[in-house]
Design a protein around this nucleic acid. Sequence first.
RNA 1: GGGCACGUAGUCUAGCACGGAUAAGGCGCCAGCCUUCGAAGUUGGAGGUCCCAGGUUCGAAUCCUGGCGUGCCCGCCA
Length: 617
Amino acid sequence: MLAKASATTNEIVLGSIEVPPDSALGDLSSTLAFALAKELKKNPGAIASEMLPKLQKMIEQEPLISKVETKGPYINIFFERAAFTDMTITSVSNAENTYGQSSHFKDKRVLIEFPAVNPSKPWHIGHARNAILGDTLSNILESVGYEVVKLDYINDLGLQIAQLVWKLKQISADEGEKKYDHYLGHLYVEVQETFDSSEEVQKEVREVSRHLENLQSDDAKISGEMVRRCVEAQCQTAYKLGIYHNYQVWESAIAHSGLLSLAKDMILQCDNIFKPEDGDKAGCIVANLSVIDEFKDMKDPHKILFRSDGTRTYTGADVALQLWKFGLVKDPFHYAVFEDQPNGKSVKRTTLEGEDENLGKFDIVLNVIASRQAHPQKMVYTVLDLMGYTKESENSHHIAYEFVGLEDEDFSGRHGTWIGYSTDDVIDRATEMAMVEVDKRNPDESDEFKNNVANQVAIGAIRYFMLNASPDRKITFRWEQALDFNGDAAPYLQYSLARARRILEKIQSDAKGKVDLGKLTSDAEFELVKAISRFPDEILDVAKALKKDVWGTGFISNRITAYGFGLATLFSKFYDSCPVLKAETGVREARLALVESFKITMTNCLKILGIPVVDRM
RNA sequence: GGGCACGUAGUCUAGCACGGAUAAGGCGCCAGCCUUCGAAGUUGGAGGUCCCAGGUUCGAAUCCUGGCGUGCCCGCCA
């Protein structure tokens, strides 16, 4: 319409549309006049007023728009409230629990890997950030039509594992009462002191490390048992946060599957990857990155993928795994159920004996990894590009996020700085604090009820805290901030929904006759309607914003928490100013319909965020 | 040495991709609102050199250049 009135393209008009700072100014506005002023060399205010009469005539045939005004150069558009409300509420109640979903990326498949914590320690709160981001991103991608496969990577062959196996052989079997991952985590810290100070120990650990390569060795059996128990314990933490996977890739399975030699053969086919005959990298397999514009000025553009003794570097292994993820190599793995998860689905792991399975092709592959790994990730994708897999390289995304740390240090497994800040500790403390609040409000309820609610509030608060921070910002962990249950936090969203449910509970669901939604005319009501109507676009925007950047692919998780917070705020204002049950007949039914729409939208929003819906709190 | 990110009230942040109306929230502080659907709520108030300096523009927190400060990354390691 604006395009017609101004004789310009739709694209320019769409770019000029924005939401005014104050809804009294309009529901939408356009800065088109500014853009035109440049071309026409006229005063933008004049252009806007010239366009106004044309626009006013045109909206007579637009049922959704009631009026158009100008304020200086701004063209402000007002919706026809009754029609807009009717349209929104009808579409919400038709879609119900699928409201917010779309089929924009239908038939696309995505593989997402997170959090890949070493099986030698409990998750600290930074690992939780990774996992929560990965899980929420998975929810979003599912909402916009993707088929999502969630993958975890278990490095059961690292130095950390050898050190722990060495330590386990030194001590008696008494583990005490600790959760197994915590037990190992503490052992690991102990090992470091002896390891760093004794060459003898280092030698012995290297010996263990060699044994681990042989799956039949005693050390490998100790390791297998240890890692299995550790991963099981870590999974317990994940489940508390509502995080589940489809597959686990174990490093030991990779090492013995033949994947690396398959990949090596493919890599050597490539012109820009070769074996230097002399120099300091003689005998290695290196990628020549200098052919890529971005790396051409590097001091040494030769990145080693396989060492001179034939073993792979991290980058080499990552390239092999990335090839597998895209289905570019024949799947060399067998699969077996690792365990059944509380969500009713089982998670499978790669094994050497077990069933074949075809994971199939993926359109995009996401790796959720700390942003300090941006450089190595980029190397992997670049090598894919060098190999001629340009499309796969482009569709490889490093979902980058900053670390969670303390005031003046980062969490470190080696130094044990995570102690006291494990995800389990934080959940426990959050639950205790939530319990105090729950108890205050529901003194007469059963312990079961109170425990349940406290847990739901705690989990919600932690997930929200992690998602509400923009992923490119470092989080300094402070208890009072992470576990604040007031204001911009999960309980606010949960609470708004609980209130809505209480209202709906108090009416008998009498036959839904014709409801005149035109009765919803106040600002508080209409603002809520507008927010509800935006939900599907908000989700889609976040999915579409997954674009590559120099340092990774940004996932704006905070957009969804901000949306949820805004939605809850508008409901709270509506709740405060518009009584529902005591309203006169007609208005009452219309408001009930609005509350129902809010309930559906907020429920779906919390589902995407992974925040539990609390009935009463 | 090179690269990346960050710098916004006392404090924690949003906004920056794609420039637009009075810079938006939470916490904290001050003052109101519970015989009316749940006060984990709500209404109002105080609080700002958007790190600095230039530039582009009718218009810059947002774009460009140059600084300053903070964190991180650049191994045949793991």
